[in-house]
Design a protein around this nucleic acid. Structure first.
Length: 471
RNA sequence: GGUCCCUUCGUCUAUCGGUUAGGACACCAGAUUUUCAAUCUGGGAAGAGGGGUUCGACUCCCCUAGGGACUACCA
């Protein structure tokens, strides 16, 4: 019991682009499992490909992870910095005869590749069983895998997966420039970092067999593997740009809350009975890699929207006001503290029905407008003489209102409608138009309350009285 | 081509040999209604196909079909 090492998981992105939503889910599962078991969650940046790795991508990945709230329990490791250790491991393999120097030229390799493919077999180097000690010139170091038998990857998600060793090619461990390749580096680093559970995308399932062999050759204890399916687009194809978004930053920009993303992503490919909405604490208590589904899941915007709506309802109004202000800022509307205050007053009125922050921005735009408002065509059309006069009477009625709160105003409106002998439908739309200028707005009492007495009456004045004067 | 993985309502999933195959989102209908929503009520909707094993298969095995990954001196 107590002699069992505590769980260590890791997320190992390669910094060649932004943080993909599928990668984010992989990170989430690693994080959840570490939290669930009381272990630790580490991050390792796989930057051994110097050509494609960029500092901008490193930033984007950490930014995405931070936004999601998935932070490492230790200082992140940069794989490239461990180059010396990788070379040392390769040397060990060379010394024990588990690896060899391969002097094949690219041309020779190309010939072997097409030949192997035609014969339906793995690539083999002519240097595999040749003494290369006397040979000079550039070389790579290849793994000398067994030619028979089989390797079983006991996967926590897929179950036991068997590979024939003869199908596994002699993969390159060390490039001709002396840098380690991915398959060698992951094994060495996961071992050195004490990783006990490798939870990653199932695009690595095939690699797991090769890595398993390297673990054995290096005499390292193997970690548990869990290969989780990739996330697909709504059409079932691999998620790509044409599906709307794939970077977590895109989701942030589109107005999704990080807690909603965590809930949605956790639910994608994993479930706990009929539970759909759950807190981080619940997810941590319930999560186990073993329960992750083995089939790829599709991204469903409608469900994401639904979950986001749930968390928007729960969210603090001030926080939402700030996010909404940000969205308005992006739309070109200038923001100041007073505006944020106005938004905060309007948000409780509309948050129930909004799925994303931009929608919230749309529904609160009316409080930001400044007098006199330009009325849209529809409102102008509604303002016939009868309605105009009725609203003038309403203005006077409201001006005399004792309290300016949504419930009180609700009563005032109903009372006024009754005294006029008409339904709210008779003047409600026109009133909304005047208060909002035509953009969407919450219910009338709420709009009046959010605008405040002075602003509301002012907008009414502008539309009803000044206009008649100029006639 | 080869190796490997996957397959329950439109979507995400529950089921872990015996259920009227459950839930959620979406959808449809109705209610409500001052716009858009939200809300309430009701409804339709699934085990890819074919063989086995078994008293009994969504569940276990095999085959087929369809998806996907890998097959780099990328990760």
């Amino acid at each position: 019991m107590s002699d069992r090492p505590s769980v260590v998981t890791r997320f190992a992105p390669s910094p060649t682009g932004y943080l993909h939503i599928g990668g984010a889910r992989t990170a989430l599962f690693n994080w959840l499992y570490a939290r669930h078991t009381g272990g630790s969650f580490l991050i390792r940046v796989e930057d051994t490909d110097r050509e494609r790795s960029t500092p901008a991508a490193v930033d984007a990945i950490f930014k995405g992870l931070d936004w999601l709230g998935l932070t490492s329990d230790a200082e992140p490791v940069f794989q490239f910095s461990r180059a010396a250790r990788h070379r040392e491991a390769v040397q060990q393999l060379l010394d024990t005869g588990r690896a060899y120097r391969c002097h094949m030229t690219v041309e020779e390799l190309e010939v072997e590749r097409t030949k192997a493919r035609a014969e339906g077999r793995a690539i083999r180097s002519i240097w595999r069983d040749r003494d290369s000690s006397g040979s000079a010139g550039p070389f790579v170091v290849r793994f000398k895998g067994p030619m028979d038998g089989e390797t079983v990857v006991d996967d926590l998600v897929k179950g036991p997966v068997r590979f024939h060793n003869k199908e596994l090619d002699d993969l390159v461990l060390l490039r001709s420039d002396g840098a380690a390749t991915y398959n060698l580096a992951v094994v060495v680093d996961d071992h050195d970092m004490g990783v006990t559970h490798v939870i990653r995308g199932d695009d690595h399932l095939n690699n797991a067999a090769r890595q398993s062999l390297i673990y054995e050759a290096l005499d390292f204890a193997k970690p548990a593997f869990a290969h989780i399916p990739l996330i697909h687009g709504p059409d079932g194809a691999k998620l790509s740009k044409r599906h709307g978004a794939q970077a977590v930053g895109d989701f942030a920009d589109m107005g999704y809350l990080p807690e909603a993303m965590r809930n949605y992503l956790a639910r994608l490919g994993w479930g706990h009975g009929d539970d759909e909405i759950f807190s981080d604490a619940q997810a941590i208590a319930w999560f186990d890699v073993k329960d992750v589904g083995s089939a790829p899941a599709r991204l469903d915007w409608a469900k994401l929207n639904h979950i986001n709506n749930h968390y928007i309802r729960l969210a603090d109004d001030h926080r939402l006001a700030l996010l909404t202000a940000e969205a308005h800022g992006r739309l070109g509307t200038a923001m100041d503290a007073a505006s944020v205050g106005k938004l905060e007053a309007a948000i409780p009125l509309v948050k129930e029905g909004t799925k994303t922050i931009p929608e919230l921005a749309d529904l609160t735009l009316f409080v930001l407008k400044t007098r006199p408002l330009a009325l849209d065509a529809k409102t102008q059309q509604l303002l016939n003489d009868e309605t105009r006069e009725r609203l003038q009477r309403l203005t006077e009625h409201l001006a005399a209102a004792a309290a300016w709160t949504a419930p009180a105003l609700e009563g005032e409106l109903k009372q006024f409608a009754a005294s006029e002998g008409v339904g709210l439908g008779k003047f409600g739309p026109a009133l909304r138009g005047i208060l909002s200028g035509g953009s969407t707005a919450p219910d009338l009492a709420g709009a009046l309350a959010a605008l405040g007495r002075e602003e509301s009456l002012g907008r009414l004045q502008d539309a009803l009285f000044k206009a008649t004067k100029t006639l």
